[in-house]
Design a protein around this nucleic acid. Structure first.
Lengths: 169, 169
DNA sequence: GTATATTAGTTGCGTAAGCAACATTTGTTT
DNA sequence: AAACAAATGTTGCTTACGCAACTAATATAC
């Protein structure tokens, strides 16, 4: 096992230690969720994401534009994705009484049923990957460190502005 | 600010505390990298990813199948992506002397130039988001916790098999 | 040494996603 | 209130990606 010459990579490996671990962990967890919680429902990850967002909304319904922002997807894609979920009977479009441009997307009984199938698997998978792996204190530490990175990454180039950017999203 | 009725979400919010923070952080860091390090090069994130992998390879060259595995992309897509990068003059395909099926993808001078433009921006961005946010000890802690999650998420359902799953990827 | 299986890479095809353009409705200015 | 601006949602077009089928080359079986 001869040591390779290590031909001067331009990017210092040190740089990616943390961000690389972050990415790898995210991928591993995402894979686990997809294969063991999402796939058994017979629906796409994005469809499940849609249903979860609707479920978590105040009245189990959201306007398309809000879905678009929450799911970080373009309005055009939301439109077509809601089409598909509607065809499958998982959601329905209702008129928004306050804004005739908007249409509220709401969970149907069938959609809730899919979620009831999904949720326990999701909880189980997350518990196995995280709950049983980290103590509560460790989880708190992890979240605190992640939040600090997230905050630093979300403030573009404002210098030491110390602005009241307090309650970030 | 009346407290919403909180209409019984199916998924317990507790469940997603850690994985949600993980996802949000990953997205924030990815955005930062894309806008401040990748975009100025005028190339796609995936193209940069390709170039970085080639740069990090032992001889600045990799076979397509290895790229496929490292980048987690299908062979077909790698093929077309190398096409494009080759058209742009960033990489070149060379015959593999040991395997006439394979073609080695190598960085060109132009490709290395793009990396020289990218690398310092990347290091700066990561340093700002992580280096200046976490102490060395905190970074170590974070990596350790992430690695434990990654490991737990990567072992599907093997129970306590304690198999020689040692040097996982 | 021939037959079979496996691997590397490419191409055809279908789906997923975003951007730009548009119609409709709402908000704002004067 | 009339004109202009902004927001919501949909559709047309393009690109990004994966799967299946294929060719060529290597490895394995007999």
């Amino acid at each position: 096992m001869t040591q390779q010459p290590k031909p001067t990579s331009i990017l210092a490996p040190e740089t990616l230690r943390v961000s690389g671990a972050l990415l790898a962990t995210q991928i591993a967890v995402g894979r686990l969720i997809d294969t063991e919680a999402v796939a058994p429902t017979g629906h796409d990850p994005t469809t499940l994401d849609l249903l979860v967002r609707l479920d978590e909304a105040p009245d189990h319904r959201l306007r398309a534009v809000d879905l678009s922002r929450q799911l970080l997807m373009s309005p055009s894609h939301i439109s077509r994705r809601v089409d598909r979920a509607e065809t499958l009977g998982l959601v329905e479009r209702n008129a928004d009484p306050d804004d005739r441009r908007a249409s509220q997307v709401a969970l149907t009984t069938a959609g809730r049923k899919v979620l009831q199938q999904f949720a326990p698997r999701m909880e189980s998978v997350i518990d196995r990957a995280i709950g049983q792996t980290l103590s509560d204190a460790e989880a708190d530490t992890l979240i605190e460190l992640l939040n600090r990175i997230q905050k630093a990454a979300s403030e573009p180039l404002l210098g030491q502005q110390t602005s009241s950017s307090s309650t970030a999203n």
